[in-house]
């Protein structure tokens, strides 16, 4: 056993948002090409800490296991990322695992990202196509616009950009880069553009695009390389023009 390679993990645990947090250390045998989730699964098989104390299995969220759902997002060695797509070989040991700090903890590594989904509702992140009669086909989308839109369509609401953002904290309810990127996406759709003022209005408050501090961590943290900072600059322009128009033209 002594000459066998092992992986040491430190997991920050917490019964819920109100309970005190504590760390537990685990040691599991090394297998090549392991990712962080496979370590957690290994621990779950036999939840005994490094010093031999039996404990409960750590709780975390996972779903797709191929980096497209965003549910397994957590802090690994202090940095935000998807635990399904983060390889043990790329992390220095002991590997620390923490829940994201900008969302309420449900238990251990699982967090409640409802805030992000509420924000998607707030910015009306959909294209209204329902009517009491057949509205007919919508306008065509230029191929160039479609390609640009696709980049923003890859957002999986994982929360990495909010986690890395210095402007998102308990003192501020900044809706964050992800939602602003979605305004950019739905406003660039020819049918979505028909209700673009509603979305611009939704991001024109104190919690909206104006709360961005241009630290540009979001674009670095985004696992999908979504050009969030470009969306923020563009929405800055659009909201300002919308405000001017609203003031001078009324409505």
């Amino acid at each position: 056993m002594s000459d066998q390679k092992t992986i040491v993990l430190k997991i920050k645990r917490r019964a819920d948002q109100e309970s005190p947090a504590y760390w537990e250390e685990f040691e599991i045998p090394y297998r090549p090409a392991m990712n962080v989730i496979s370590c957690l699964m290994e621990i779950r098989k036999n939840p005994v800490t490094r010093d031999g104390k039996a404990t409960s299995a750590p709780v975390w969220e996972m779903n797709c296991l191929e980096n497209v759902c965003g549910s397994c997002t957590m802090l690994m060695n202090g940095k935000v990322g998807q635990s399904c797509a983060t390889l043990v070989d790329n992390l220095t040991q002991p590997i620390s695992l923490e829940p994201m700090s900008k969302f309420p903890t449900i238990k251990d590594l699982a967090v409640d990202r409802s805030r992000m989904f509420a924000n998607l509702k707030k910015i009306r992140a959909w294209i209204p196509i329902d009517g009491t009669y057949d509205l007919g086909p919508g306008p065509r989308i230029a191929e160039r616009d479609r390609q640009e839109a696709y980049e923003f369509a890859r957002c999986m609401t994982c929360g990495s950009c909010l986690e890395a953002c210095p402007q998102v904290s308990e003192h501020s309810n900044f809706i964050g880069p992800a939602a602003i990127g979605q305004v950019r996406l739905f406003n660039s759709h020819p049918t979505g553009a028909m209700t673009k003022e509603e979305r611009l209005e939704a991001i024109s408050g104190a919690d909206g695009v104006t709360s961005c501090g241009n630290a540009q961590n979001c674009v670095k943290a985004c696992p999908k390389q979504i050009p969030l900072t470009e969306a923020i600059a563009e929405m800055n322009r659009d909201v300002t023009l919308y405000k001017f128009k609203q003031f001078f033209r009324g409505k």
Partner: peptide
């Protein structure tokens, strides 16, 4: 189970121009 989601307390509708945080 779900922790109460902090729905944005603030309505973004401007409460008159002088209260507009954007301005």
């Amino acid at each position: 189970m779900a922790v109460a989601s902090p729905e944005n307390k603030e309505t973004t509708r401007a409460k008159g121009r002088l209260h507009d945080p954007y301005l």
